[in-house]
């Protein structure tokens, strides 16, 4: 991982910790039928920084032992948390940023998700203002599973400050996805609608081993070797991941198909994860 990314992650971790602060969560919602809900959500009282320097609303989930929530691609089953923000006039929100997920389940039923806790960031963009805070409402829905699943829902409201709180309990750290290092090359075998995405570079470019890829499929994009993870191969000093895919443009109901996913390095939640988000026609062909 390059120094910039390391710094961004370090700053991010600090700001997350600060943002949750000593202030009690805005609202914790539980499933009424349960003494202790398997998961609950709270809204941080401060905005936080994203890895690319934007500011974001932070939703923190507490997850009871043995239960899990899901990544944006839940895998063979499950569903990711859905968040709908209501912001002051002039403010807009971006795509939810999910941290590096854990690989859960078995080869027969593979899932990508989170245990213990989860911090989700929703970038927000607003006009320059001297106001110290903004009113935020977050409608949050989630599916939390163990051997069976429970649906959770919360409406969280908070006057969210721009300034972080200096006192903070630490949350479980998870790496946020960062840009693929320039030294790792993405190329295409085959055509932009039927082929393999090849991610290759000097092994040291990836940092920590092992290296694998987990897809985050858009509609219309099918990854042909299943749910993943797609394991890397190391030949000499070069590490390569090959991800066969097929695209059906007529099935692309979420917009032009892109090849999306995460390159995971190492095994720990804090080990770097690199974002892959490519328009197939922009990926150069493999050199022969």
């Amino acid at each position: 991982m390059d120094r910039f990314n390391s710094t961004v992650l370090a700053v991010y971790g600090t700001l997350i910790a600060l943002a949750m602060g000593s202030t009690p969560p805005a609202q914790v919602v539980s499933t009424p039928a349960q003494a202790v809900a398997p998961a609950s959500a709270s809204l941080a009282p401060c905005l936080v920084a994203t890895p690319d320097g934007a500011t974001a609303v932070l939703i923190r989930f507490r997850i009871e032992p043995h239960w899990h929530l899901y990544w944006s691609n839940p895998g063979d089953s499950g569903a990711p948390p859905a968040i709908k923000l209501t912001l002051p006039a002039g403010w807009t929100s971006g795509v939810t940023i999910f941290p590096r997920p854990e690989i859960l389940g078995t080869a027969e039923e593979r899932n990508f998700g989170y245990q213990d806790s989860l911090d989700l960031l929703i970038p927000v963009f607003g006009p320059k203002s001297d106001a110290p805070s903004i009113a935020v409402e977050a409608k949050v829905d989630w599916l939390v599973c163990k051997t069976s699943c429970i649906m959770g829902r919360a409406t969280l409201s908070e006057q969210v400050s721009i300034s972080p709180d200096p006192k903070a309990p630490q949350s479980r750290s998870r790496a946020l996805p960062v840009k693929l290092p320039d030294s790792v090359r993405a190329t295409l075998e085959g055509s932009p609608t039927q082929g393999s995405l090849v991610l290759s570079g000097a092994t040291k470019s990836f940092g920590t081993l092992p290296v694998s890829f987990i897809p985050d499929p858009m509609s219309g994009v099918e990854y042909l070797d299943g749910t993943g993870p797609y394991l890397s191969r190391q030949v000499g000093d070069v590490t390569t991941i090959r991800v066969p895919f097929s695209i059906e443009p007529k099935d692309a109901v979420d917009g032009p198909p892109r090849l999306r996913g995460l390159v995971l390095t190492g095994k720990r939640d804090v080990d770097p994860a690199f974002q892959v988000d490519l328009k197939p026609s922009d990926v150069p062909a493999v050199e022969k």
């Binding site: 499950g78 899932n111 599916l143 599973c145 699943c149 499929p217 509609s219 059906e248 007529k250």
Partner: peptide
Amino acid sequence: KPVEPSTTKNKGCGVKYASK
């Protein structure tokens, strides 16, 4: 007419299969 889309991402609980 052709079905479009013909595949979408399914979500939900995993089917609780008996072991194979």
